[in-house]
Design a protein around this nucleic acid. Sequence first.
DNA 1: CGTTCTGTTGACCACGTTCAATCAGTGTGG
DNA 2: CCACACTGATTGAACGTGGTCAACAGAACG
Lengths: 264, 264
Amino acid sequence: MPQNGRGQAKRLSVLPGPHVPCVECAIRNSALFRPVSEEHLDWTQGYRAAQMRLPAQAHLYREGDSPEYCWTLYDGWVKLYKTLVTGKRQILRFAMAGDFLGFQPDLQGPMGHAAQALTDCTLCAFPRARLGELFQARPEVATQFAWMAARDMRLCQEHLAGMGKKSARERIAYLLLEICHRQRQIARATGRLAPGQRVPVPITQEDIADAVGLTPVHVSRTLSQMRAERLIACAKGEVFIMNEEALTEIAEFDPRLIEARPLL
Amino acid sequence: MPQNGRGQAKRLSVLPGPHVPCVECAIRNSALFRPVSEEHLDWTQGYRAAQMRLPAQAHLYREGDSPEYCWTLYDGWVKLYKTLVTGKRQILRFAMAGDFLGFQPDLQGPMGHAAQALTDCTLCAFPRARLGELFQARPEVATQFAWMAARDMRLCQEHLAGMGKKSARERIAYLLLEICHRQRQIARATGRLAPGQRVPVPITQEDIADAVGLTPVHVSRTLSQMRAERLIACAKGEVFIMNEEALTEIAEFDPRLIEARPLL
DNA sequence: CGTTCTGTTGACCACGTTCAATCAGTGTGG
DNA sequence: CCACACTGATTGAACGTGGTCAACAGAACG
């Protein structure tokens, strides 16, 4: 599990990582190579250029970059965000173990958003230029990508609907529940047991604000109120969900959103 | 080109459509079968269960439905929207010619949003149950789907960022420009010439409001002001963009968003 | 110890909402 | 043919959610 990485900003950039072979990958069940049979796995692993470590606070890529790779996030949290010309930031998504990062329609072109590590991360890098080739050679990978893209699209659409139509309170409740359920889902898929209701959340209130479209000030107020109502409890870098039922009702959150079954 | 279909609501449901073979398909350049070679096209056409017509105002599917098909939109406009328990609606996307509709992570499960025709539409239906098979048999189709999904995801993310961080004026300007540019892109891809700045827009102010997260009242006010500033002009079911440059600046719109190049 | 970063609280303000009345266009039925 | 209903757009007035500005507190860190 990723430790809370705030304030640990090492000023080093990308580091070489461990070399876990795909066959032993703990998160393969929720990642791009899930449907690849063991006999083909050595071969597809050839597309993995490297495993690398990214320290907390470091950028995987910035808006406008044309990075050489796409990545599977092996461990840790990453935030994807856009910056408008006014300087305002919008967090699009919190990426977690298993998520595939850096793919976009124009593979040569510049990224439309930035990706920054929230905790120390481990990633597997795949050369962008060879992705088309990989999809052609192993259609089950392309199909898994399609499935993952559809899943991410649905999250994005729910997020969008929330921004348009929900109150501050509802949006924040929704975000907390979404994060909590996705963490549990990962714990399930990787065989690790979820430690009760307890969810370490390595994000600041400013991150929450940028994700749900509010100001940090108003997020603070709303969280204070939720604490007063015993809906949640906060410790440093952690949020405990005290009353999941009530929160689910407030947020209009449907847990089935997170439990989708793979295509293949 | 789709005619303005408002008020033409025929009370018939789905109708059988024309039978254009895929080889002659006018929009193949921007649709799922784009990368399929002509020699394979007859074969992939076997996955197309039917062509059908959908009258304006009719629903292709509703939230919670588990339709038997996915569709390529051949002609016309469709709006995709979610309804919250409070009754508020959020339009996720205006689908136009070439868009692939109805795909979601859990192909057996219920749709997370509804799709309703804005104009009379023509669609090509593909059985959901056979999509995995199609992707396996023709990886270039899976790859094209991946590309289209990434393109749609980017639109959704831009939309999301706008909802979080832009003013009413900026969001409306953005929506108008996005629609205009996508229409032009389709005109280019299908070889039809775009008729100047003129864009027939078969949507009501209420649709605009539901798309950008405002009330119809405030949309009316904002459009009135934009008309007063000669940024746009309105006729019945049409919007003319009078000052695209100014509008682009207001919206912080990047035309390159729409012009992405295919993966294969 | 100062500095920096994150969170908290207060006072005031504004963008967009809500409620309401009115109008134009369109289709319907007597 | 006209009265009527219905939908979409427009405008006005009052209101409220959340933003802005500001001061401050606590923790982490050099």
